[in-house]
Design a protein around this nucleic acid. Structure first.
Length: 426
RNA sequence: GGAGAGUUGGCCGAGUGGUCGAAGGCGCACGCUUGGAAAGCGUGUAUACUCCAAAAGGGUAUCGAGGGUUCGAACCCCUCACUCUCCGCCA
């Protein structure tokens, strides 16, 4: 959520950012409405505060009279109280209606884009930040897409997954299952090496947490909701891990705080269908190792690029062709100021698959989280939050299976062998 | 699932209707003291909104959350959330 202060101080900049997100002039008018509502709020609040101040002082006066044994002299004061209360009650109603209206509008405004984010309407307008310049893998004749390899080697069973839960819930078995576990261990170890503290968070979160990181109300339909207990299955570890800092004030010296965690991720993906969701391309449950940093505003961009480098290194080690996209305004997530997506080449499908998304949220999340740090002068400031996938497993597995297939088996990346205990799926 | 206890500032903890944004202690910061440190002494030490051009200084709200009683609520009443203990069940 944007800060009112920022909206007041940099309205024009924010409007320009909304235009980059392809908002219409009419929709952008919301910024003026917010400023106007906030002015109303201030006026009402001042009036209300004055009434309350008067009530407080009358109460004190009455108290003093009672103590002095002059309780009989309070009648006039009490009738004044009735009067002031009436006006205060009116203002109270007005104030809560205004606050609600203000909040509704405020919560519907996305993060202000970083000035370097390119304009554009959809994913086709994303800028290639780093292209893959080397050769793409050449597959042998009769090479198969991963869902057929999965069946051939009996390592992933989509039909059983569908029987047990539904489509989009793959079941890994045998070497498929071990590949999954190896990747998780490898990714976590890389995170540990890079100085991230490892976390195993809850897999369900309450409404407050989902709101704080911006999943609610923006992505309500994307999450599985356990209505009986009013909990949400996490769509990413970002939600529980970032919420570790809800309502926290950290010391400036503790920054940056670096955390990593492996969790399954649950996404409803309502409305998805077709070839693009086949196999592991888009599933309701997948595993992911996430990296999160809480950083000083002055250093958050430096940090963003170090996180990108971290992901790159992992992909290099796995020997997978990848490219990095800088998302355009139209494709950048609601809560993000800037996002870089990593795509890995899936050789048998001939497609690039998104496997990581690294973002700087600046203060958008910390404002809702109320995550602050105390600066040198002792003032509380909102910290910047960043996160990225390092990495999402399902699609990485798809690429490993497809890219490294040979007529007599799938050769595992070298870095994984010590985790796997085997070199080849055959 | 059943029964009970609890939730106060960075922490501990007092407080059962006005003098309570809240005693006391610890911690922390600054100063004095010291050759230096410790001890000691002194001062200060929440958050949000708001008034003021700014500072100084005001105002309002916050003692788990919401509502009620009252001129006045941390304190009385109601509802809810969470934590802990015991019993039951259970990986």
């Amino acid at each position: 959520m944007l800060q009112l202060k920022d909206i007041e101080n940099s309205a024009e900049e924010i409007k320009a950012s909304l235009a980059k997100r392809n908002w219409s002039q009419q929709a952008i008018h919301i910024i003026d409405e917010i400023i106007e509502l906030n002015n109303q709020r201030k006026a009402i609040q001042t009036a209300l505060d004055n009434d309350k101040a008067e009530l407080n002082s009358i109460a004190k006066e009455i108290g003093d009279l009672f103590k002095a044994g002059k309780g009989s002299q309070t009648t006039d004061l009490k009738s004044r109280v009735t009067q002031v209360k009436e006006s205060a009650e009116k203002d109270e109603l007005l104030l809560s209606a205004t606050l609600q209206a203000l909040d509704e509008k405020l919560i519907s405004v996305p993060n202000t884009l970083h000035s370097s984010v390119p304009a554009g309407k959809s994913e086709t307008d994303n800028e290639v930040y780093k292209a893959w310049t080397k050769d793409l893998p050449q597959l042998h004749d009769g090479a198969l897409p991963h869902w057929e390899l999965a069946e051939k080697y009996n390592i992933i069973d989509f039909k059983l997954g569908a029987l047990i839960a539904g489509s989009g819930f793959p079941l890994f078995r045998g070497k498929g299952s071990r590949l999954q576990r190896a990747l998780i261990s490898y990714f976590l170890d890389e995170g540990n090496k890079a100085g991230y503290e490892e976390i195993v968070p809850p897999l369900m979160v309450n409404e407050d947490s989902a709101k704080a990181t911006g999943q609610l109300p923006d992505k309500e339909g994307q999450m599985y909701h356990v209505t009986k207990d009013d909990l949400y299955l996490i769509p990413t570890a970002e939600v529980p891990i970032t919420n570790m800092f809800r309502d926290q004030i950290v010391d400036e010296k503790e920054l940056p705080i670096k955390l990593t965690g492996y969790t399954p991720c649950f996404r409803r993906e309502a409305g998805s269908y077709g070839a693009h969701v086949k196999g592991l391309n888009r599933v309701h449950q997948f595993d992911k190792v996430e990296i999160v940093q809480i950083e000083h505003p002055d250093k958050s961009y430096e940090t963003l690029y170090s996180m990108i480098a971290h992901v790159e290194q992992i992909l290099n080690n796995l020997n997978l062709p990848y490219r990095i996209l800088k998302l355009c305004g139209g494709d950048t997530g609601f809560t993000s100021a800037i996002t870089y997506d990593f795509e890995v080449y899936s050789a048998a499908q001939g497609r690039w698959l998104e496997v990581s998304s690294v973002s700087n949220f600046e203060t958008f999340q910390s404002n809702r989280l109320k995550l602050r740090y105390k600066d040198e002068s002792g003032k509380n400031q909102f910290a910047h939050t960043l996160n990225g996938s390092a990495l999402a497993l399902a699609r990485i597995i798809a690429c490993i299976l497809e890219n490294f297939q040979t007529p007599d088996g799938i050769i595992m990346p070298k870095v994984l062998v010590k985790y796997l205990g085997f070199e080849k799926i055959d």
